[in-house]
């Protein structure tokens, strides 16, 4: 495992921890899109079907369990926790799941490396992860008041994707036959979705003003 991959995983882990910190200690999920969180839970549930059949490493297994456990517990908190759910911006978080899920499923059935159940599910999870942030980005744009933790959460998620691209470039030059068009293209699309957010994030950081996305 190279440094980019490891840093990417750690950034991903940090994003989840920031979100759990916000929800667990502040008891608030204001500005967080439940739709995006539900899509991530679906992403991990469909991607990690190999959890109990293919052993890669202890690190790999532990991380999979962490991402599965954290994504489902975040969804649980926002939907059912009696204090946390009160802060959920339900009226603003209106993105429809099937609008993203159905095209991804269709695309995975058409474009995949191997037409087997597990491989189609794996591919579906890649496509869905690429666009799962959209409800969150829409909500950020609607929320006039983005708090620090929410801003950092989205920034860390974007940084994780950018580091994965560096990881793929590194692996392409150091490992024989390392070519994965589906992973790369969906990963690139996913990272590009953050470009706009990154721009305003760095602007607010540079000028030391509160993060706000233009409508």
């Amino acid at each position: 495992m190279n440094i980019f991959r490891f840093a990417g995983d750690m950034t991903h882990l940090a994003s989840v921890l920031v979100l759990l910190l916000k929800i667990h200690t502040i008891k608030s999920c204001a500005g967080i899109s439940l739709k995006t969180q539900e899509l991530y839970a679906l992403v991990f549930a469909t991607r990690y079907l190999d959890l109990f059949t293919d052993y890669i490493s202890l690190y790999n297994t532990l991380m999979k369990l962490i991402f599965l456990g954290s994504s489902f517990s975040i969804v649980w908190y926002i939907r059912y926790h009696k204090i946390v759910r009160r802060s959920y911006d339900k009226d603003q978080d209106t993105f429809r799941h099937y609008f993203l899920v159905l095209p991804c499923l269709l695309l995975a059935l058409l474009i995949n490396e191997k037409f087997t159940f597990r491989e189609v599910m794996w591919t579906f999870s890649l496509y869905l992860e690429a666009v799962a942030i959209l409800p969150q980005l829409v909500l950020l744009q609607r929320t006039r008041n983005i708090d620090n933790l929410t801003g950092q959460y989205v920034f860390l998620l974007g940084a994780y994707r950018a580091l994965y691209i560096l990881n793929w470039i590194y692996r392409y030059f150091t490992e024989p036959h390392y070519v994965h068009w589906i992973t790369w293209i969906s990963g690139l699309v996913q990272t590009l979705l953050y470009a706009d957010f990154f721009y305003y994030y760095f602007q607010s950081w540079k000028n030391n003003v509160k993060l706000e996305l233009p409508a």
């Binding site: 995983d9 890669i56 790999n60 490396e113 191997k114 490992e175 994965h180």
Partner: peptide
């Protein structure tokens, strides 16, 4: 194989 090396990522 290609599939296995792809699935070692998270």
């Amino acid at each position: 194989s290609a599939i296995v090396s792809q699935h070692d990522e998270l």
